Amino acid sequence: MLTLRKITLLLAFTLFGQRAIATETEVLFDTQRSRHIPVTITPIDSKCTAQKKCPVVFIGAGYGMAHTDYQFAQQVFHQHGYLTVEVAHELNGDPSLNPEPPYMTTRMENWHRGVETLVFLVNELKGRYPAYDFNQLTLFGHSNGGDIAALYAAIYPAKVSKVITLDHRRMLIPRNKNIAVLTLRGSDYPADDNVLLTQQELALYPVTQVTMAGSRHNDMYDGGPKVLVERMRKELDAFLSRY
C-alpha cells in the first residue's frame, strides 16, 4: 500500500501578478521500494476539470542541486496553466553518480531509479488531482535530471507530450514526431555522441536545440547569472507558447 506523509502547506507568490498560490511540500513514500520522495506540488487556480484537464510537468534537478532550484521555470509553467511537481531524485544513501564512461551503461541504474520515481508519482497523484492530465506529461530536467526525463520519454513515449532539458549531456534526445523537445545547451561542455540531433534530424522532428552563448553548465539554475536565467525563462516561455 502507498502511504503519504505531509510536511507543510506553504503560500507562495508568483512573479506574474503576485497572486497567492497553495504550494504543497511533502514526502511521499513508495512502499514497494521503501523510498521516501520529497516533492513540491503547485496546482493552478483555474477551471481545470476531469473533462477538460490541465497539463502536468515534472521538474528534475541537476545532480547535487535542490529540486526547488528552478523557480524561474516553475513560474513559467505555472503561468501557462501547468500543475508543477518538483521532484527530489537524489537522496542521502543513494549510490554516487558513476563518473566513468560509457555513461549510457554506467549511469543507467541512476536514471532508471528516477524513471521509477516518476512512474510512482504518476500513479500516486493522478487520483488526488483528477483535473490534471497525467497521461500526457511534460518533463523538465537539468543535466542528470534531463537524462532521466529523456529516458522516461524513451520508455513511455505515448505518455509524454514534451521534454525540456537544460544541458543534459548523456541520454539521447527523443526522436519522436509526437514529442516536442526543447534543449538549452551550455557552451562549456559538449554533449556525448548522438545525444543531439543532426540538421537532417531537426528537419524531421519537433526538436529545438538552442546554444546559450557564454553560458556554463553549472549556472543553469536560479542562482546563475541573471542574464542567463532571463534568457532561459524567455526560451521556455516561447516554446510553451508554440506547443
Score class of each variant (00 low, 15 high):
Val227Ser: 11
Tyr63Val: 08
Lys47Leu: 15
Gln199Arg: 12
Asp219Val: 01
Leu166Met: 01
Leu240Val: 13
Ile41Asp: 01
Ala131Asn: 14
Leu204Tyr: 00
Val39Gln: 01
Lys177Asp: 03
Arg35Leu: 09
Asp45Ile: 07
Thr14Arg: 06
Pro130Lys: 09
Met65His: 14
Ala153Gly: 12
Val85Cys: 10
Thr138His: 06
Ala50Gln: 09
Asn110Phe: 14
Ile59Val: 15
Leu121Trp: 08
Arg170Leu: 04
Val56Gln: 08
Leu240Thr: 12
Val160Met: 00
Lys226Phe: 04
Leu184Lys: 00
Pro101Tyr: 04
His89Pro: 08
Phe58Glu: 03
Val76Ala: 01
Phe58Asn: 05
Ala22Trp: 07
Cys54Ala: 13
Met220Arg: 01
Val122Lys: 09
Tyr156Ala: 11
Thr183Gly: 00
Pro190Gly: 01
Lys47Thr: 14
Val56Cys: 10
Leu172Glu: 02
Arg169Glu: 06
Glu116Val: 02
Gly214Thr: 08
Ile59Ser: 05
Asp94Ser: 10
Asp30Pro: 09
Leu2Ser: 15
Ala180Arg: 00
Asp69Asn: 14
Thr68Glu: 07
Val57Phe: 09
Pro38His: 05
Asn194Arg: 11
Gly81Tyr: 13
Leu91Trp: 10
Arg231Glu: 06
Gly17Asn: 11
His36Gln: 10
Ala158Ser: 15
Ser161Arg: 14
Gly224Gln: 09
Pro225Gln: 08
Lys6Phe: 09
Thr25Asp: 05
Ala61Thr: 10
Arg233Asp: 03
Val87His: 08
Leu236Tyr: 10
Thr31Cys: 05
Gly224His: 06
Val195Ile: 10
Val181Asn: 00
Lys6Glu: 08
Val210Gln: 09
Asn176Tyr: 00
Met220Ile: 03
Leu151Phe: 07
Tyr152Phe: 15
Phe29His: 14
Pro99Ala: 05
Cys48Gln: 01
Asp193Trp: 06
Met220Glu: 00
Arg5Lys: 13
Leu137Trp: 07
Asp69Lys: 09
Ala180Gln: 00
Ala20Gln: 13
Arg107Ser: 03
Ala66Asn: 15
Asp193Pro: 07
Ala131Met: 14
Lys162Gly: 03
Asp167Ile: 09
Leu118Gln: 10
Leu11Thr: 14
Tyr152His: 08
Met171His: 06
Arg231Tyr: 06
Lys52Gln: 15
Thr3Gln: 11
Leu197Ile: 03
Gln18Tyr: 13
Cys54Tyr: 13
Gly93Asp: 05
Gln71Tyr: 12
Asp133Tyr: 09
Cys48His: 04
Val115Asn: 02
Ser215Cys: 02
Asp188Tyr: 00
Gly17Met: 07
Gly62Phe: 03
Thr105Arg: 11
Pro174Arg: 06
Asp45Gln: 13
Gly17Pro: 11
Glu100His: 09
Ala88Tyr: 00
Leu2Ala: 15
Asn92Lys: 14
Met212Arg: 03
Ala149Arg: 03
Glu230Ile: 04
His78Trp: 15
Lys6Ile: 12
Thr31Gln: 11
Val85Ser: 06
Met65Ala: 15
Tyr152Gln: 03
Gln71Lys: 12
Phe13Asn: 12
Gln75Asn: 15
Gly60Gln: 15
Asp45Tyr: 10
Gln74Asp: 04
Glu124Val: 04
Arg33Phe: 07
Glu109Asn: 13
